[in-house]
Design a binder for these strands. Sequence first.
RNA 1: GGCUAGGUGGCAGAGUGGUUAUGCAGCGGCCUGCAAAGCCGUGUACCUCGGUUCGACUCCGGGCCUAGCCUCCA
Length: 457
Amino acid sequence: MTIHLFNTLTRRKEAFRPLDEQRVTMYACGPTVYNYAHIGNARPAVIFDLLYRILSRRFPKVVYARNITDVDDKINQAAAELGVPIQVVSERFAEAYHQDMAALGVGRPTIEPRATDHIDQIITMIQTLIDKGHAYVAEEHVLFDVEQFPDYGSLSRRNKRELIAGARVDVAPYKKGPGDFVLWKPSTEAQPGWDSPWGRGRPGWHIECSAMSAAHLGEIIDIHAGGQDLVFPHHENEIAQSRCAHGTDVFARYWMHNGFVTVEKRKMSKSQGNTLIVHELLKTWPGEVLRYVLLSAHYRQPLDWSEKVLEQARATLDRLYGLLRDHLNGQVSEPDAAVIEALEDDLNTPTALAALNGLARQLADADQADKAELAARLQSSGSVLGLLQQQPSAWFESMRKAIEIDESEIRKLIEQRNQARRDHDFETADRIRDELIERGIELRDGPEGTSWEVASR
RNA sequence: GGCUAGGUGGCAGAGUGGUUAUGCAGCGGCCUGCAAAGCCGUGUACCUCGGUUCGACUCCGGGCCUAGCCUCCA
């Protein structure tokens, strides 16, 4: 089956055919490193990492670039507040980002270009745009002239007149057109800056992605991805810059945009102050639970975050890991075709998870002889989704860590209870069990003795 | 105001012109000293009004509602 992807450019699901099967290129807008990532920032990281894995199954080489924006006024502000150089801020949060994403099972992209390492390319690109008449200099700024690009608005389906009518911002007086956007802006002494033909300054936000994408992937790339809120103006501007600079008809052939994570149905965003920081969530939840939740809705749909969905994901993973614990025996297997098929159909993760759970049911129903193979298939299918990769014992162990427990004491109580049971003193036995339940511990009497788990709720 | 998504069972969330999504919770059963876990079984879901059709939750049109973008934002 061919991979199908929903293309924002056409608003349709299309068969994915790369320009060069030997070298598929994708670019995702990465973080601006001035703060810890919230769960909404994690969604594209998880989703497009998954896309990268799916593509890599089909194509011999996929080059995935995800940038780090390390020059930005918010970083400057954070540095000023902390009284440290901006590099300290960007380094610190880039590292935190890597750690948090790793906890969610997100791998590193092929390339992770940083804006500050590409100032030369940015300046060159801006100069090209000026030379070709697509940009102009005004009061030490360089601006992109939207009027010179007839296709402006094609991605976001806006026309320039509407943009002007709906503009809610004051237009800077030096702009020729209200939709013109900054490619380069002057820096004060205190701000980070680089020498350029237009004086000491720093790049505008949009140009870095165009420059780095061209530098590492080429003038035309296969896939460009990011959050829905980037469609306009960020991606629209990237298209304008890149196509005008390179004289091409197309910049990215497929555009993909993920929906938002919401809280109580409202968009999670730093400006609204309703963010849930991944770093904090990881203190109470295993990364795998967060990942499961992020995969539980289709990537283009909004995903409403709540304690409840976390509990549900946890319960489901508990069951799956329980099956693996009981039936895995070192066999290996290919992933289930239904899981792959669902993912290749525009990353339909809910259907893929349904297939995964269907496999779990099959395993539960199967004859003893088939269980090991099915368990291996379950684990292997999970791996495509970046799930079920821990040792089951490690999973249950991590659950135990969530609450303060003295294991030896529990073992002692279990032994007391079992003695009482042997004595048919069920009153005592039940009392001990109830005490443990009070402390969030559930006992399980099995053929091999009594084990315990942290209770679900 | 312009533009873009979406309204599915108790909750989460896929999907399809006429067949079981799936998960979580609930209920009944098996198992158990009693439980828990597990397993089995179970639930007449598709905002509204028209239209197309032999037949629509699924296609088309109107309405209502929600969210998002138009400003930094994943």
